[in-house]
């Protein structure tokens, strides 16, 4: 099973009718081998906001259909030219792999149609590995969360879970179209990066019989020594929702 070790996010604001947006350069994963890049927009009717600034609205996925990605490797090797964002959008069951160190100043997103004003999220998965994980123990929890509020994993455990988890091996989110949220996991030594991961990346459920909204495997990770006080779930919408989340642990 493909196990992700680190997943980071950045936000691109689409403003002023510009059709070209470059990757950020001052990031922790610069110079590292990138496995996959996933773009996230909004599919739900609920107004979703970015986890980075907490206020900019996510663009609808319709805007992202007219977006393309150019990727250049560290040796000026062109890795992708006009790769349709559909091939790396979160509901694609077969995200195109990158598997290269990128020259970030030459990597960019372009739109063939001026996008609406808002933002989209780009998740960068790096240092991924192949591991045999036995997903046997799990706990599923359901809890309410107020508009734009967050709740720590410690509070979730104390109030709803009553099971101590130290090593998370996979997560599954349910009803991700109706109840979107962000999950941030931190460990005590800051070994892993799992920043504001949108629930749509953890989906594992068919929606109206459409398998494009399901994943064959849950989002597998190998996250040890979770820092309960600094790991949290954040409501991605401006309304009160009830979140259903499954943790696989050992």
């Amino acid at each position: 099973m493909r196990v992700l070790n680190n997943i980071d996010v950045f936000q691109i604001n689409t403003v002023g009718g510009s059709q070209e947006y470059y990757f950020p350069q001052n990031v922790s994963w610069a110079g590292k081998k990138i496995n996959r890049i996933v773009v996230v927009g909004s599919t739900s009717q609920e107004g979703q906001t970015s986890p980075i600034d907490g206020q900019t609205s996510l663009l609808s996925v319709e805007n992202l259909r007219n977006m393309y990605v150019d990727l250049v490797g560290k040796n000026d090797l062109e890795i992708a030219r006009n790769l349709s964002a559909e091939q790396i959008i979160f509901f694609n069951n077969h995200i195109v792999n990158v598997n290269a160190v990128l020259k970030l100043q030459l990597c960019r997103f372009t739109f063939s149609l001026v996008p609406e004003s808002g933002c989209f999220l780009v998740y960068v998965i790096y240092e991924e590995s192949e591991k045999e994980l036995l997903l046997s123990e799990s706990v599923t929890i359901q809890f309410p969360l107020s508009a734009s509020a967050d709740i720590t994993i410690k509070e979730i455990i104390d109030e709803y879970m009553h099971v101590k988890i130290e090593r998370v091996t996979a997560v599954v989110a349910w009803n991700t179209d109706e109840t979107p949220f962000y999950l941030t996991l931190r460990d005590e030594k800051d070994t892993f990066v799992f920043n504001s991961v949108h629930s749509c990346l953890m989906r594992s459920q068919t929606n109206n019989g459409n398998p494009s909204n399901s994943q064959i495997y849950p989002l597998a990770l190998n996250f040890k020594d979770v820092d309960m006080d600094n790991s949290f779930v954040r409501n991605a919408t401006n309304k009160d929702i009830t979140i259903t989340l499954t943790f696989f642990y050992s």
Binding site: R65, N66, Y68, S84, E86, Q87, V96, S112, L113
Partner: peptide
């Protein structure tokens, strides 16, 4: 190795 169909409304060459 792969052929992938895209469904944009406007292609990169407009």
């Amino acid at each position: 190795r792969q052929i992938l169909l895209g469904t944009p409304t406007i292609t990169p060459d407009l």
